[in-house]
């Protein structure tokens, strides 16, 4: 019995490569994220995105978000597919920037106002303030917030105005257990609220992220036949894991399964090797 099928593409990367002044960072990256359809379930996609520090994850995120034109290749989004423009993809950057000259509430309102009417925007912003435990701090400026509060605010801001695709660059770092659960809950909520919603999670927290994901990407340098490292990192075929196919997606309590534990060990080995 087939419990899921794939439909139209949501995000397509073709032959992406990136160089900074002759230094090759990324090369030959081709990826597809397809709309997963499960009978009876309204479910979007979650991609876990791993790689060593400094390997080029954030650079690839900026390329996907349309903020950085790649040296070669194209990124296509939306349906029908078209080249990405800034604003098509929500992107919570690694250092959680906010508008420092606006209060927390204002930050959310200015984002919500991009897509909603003023009254709606207000309601949505209030809702996020409460869900992210930020309500008591609404009048504070970003410089007065803790790291975790800033982070939640930045995530809320992107969720308030994003279309279907959103990239979170290290959303779990610096959060306590309760807040990790909260962010997890929100990711699940985002992906289950629309078929087409897709969240890409860049993370070093393999267990948490893998448990949420249905696809994994591992970015790392490749070796040629002679065992020499090639310049530039890529996401090779064998480093694109389809967890749905492996029977490791969409299951509550999956973290306890032996197959899951094995996969995490395997991922750790692969990351060490790169």
């Amino acid at each position: 019995m087939v419990d899921h099928t794939y439909k139209e593409p949501i995000l397509t990367l073709r032959d992406i490569s990136m160089q900074f002044g002759g230094e090759v960072i990324l090369r030959d990256i081709s990826l597809d994220v397809l709309d997963v359809v499960r009978p009876g379930v309204n479910q979007g996609q979650v991609v876990g995105f791993y790689g060593r520090s400094g390997v080029g994850k954030s650079v690839l995120c900026r390329i996907i978000a349309g903020l950085l034109p790649p040296s070669t290749g194209t990124v296509m989004v939306a349906n029908p597919q078209r080249p990405v423009c800034p604003g098509d993809v929500g992107f919570v950057q690694q250092r959680y920037p906010l508008f420092n000259h606006r209060t927390l509430l204002d930050n959310l309102l200015v984002a919500a106002g991009r897509k909603h009417s003023p009254a709606d925007a207000k309601a949505k912003a209030q809702d996020f303030l409460i869900r992210f435990d930020l309500a008591p701090h609404r009048r504070k400026y970003p410089a007065m917030l803790s790291g975790g509060q800033r982070q939640r605010a930045a995530i809320a801001q992107q969720l308030l105005c994003s279309e279907h695709l959103i990239i979170l660059d290290e959303p779990f770092s610096g959060l306590d257990i309760a807040m990790i659960d909260e962010v997890k809950k929100i990711i699940i909520e985002v992906t289950t609220s629309d078929e087409l919603n897709t969240v890409v999670i860049v993370s070093h927290d393999l267990a948490t992220t893998t448990a949420l994901s249905d696809t994994l990407w591992l970015l790392g340098p490749e070796r040629d036949a002679a065992g020499q490292c090639l310049a530039g990192a890529t996401i090779s075929q064998k480093h694109q894991y389809n967890l749905a196919e492996m029977g490791l997606a969409w299951q509550p309590g999956i973290q306890a399964k032996p197959e899951f534990v094995q996969l995490i060990e395997h991922l750790k080995d692969e990351i060490r090797k790169t």
Binding site: R62, L67, P86, V89, Q93, P97, K115
Partner: peptide, 12 residues
């Protein structure tokens, strides 16, 4: 860059 990118990702 980060500041400008932040505004751009909000669809501005």
């Amino acid at each position: 860059q980060e500041e400008m990118d932040h505004a751009r990702t909000l669809g501005m």
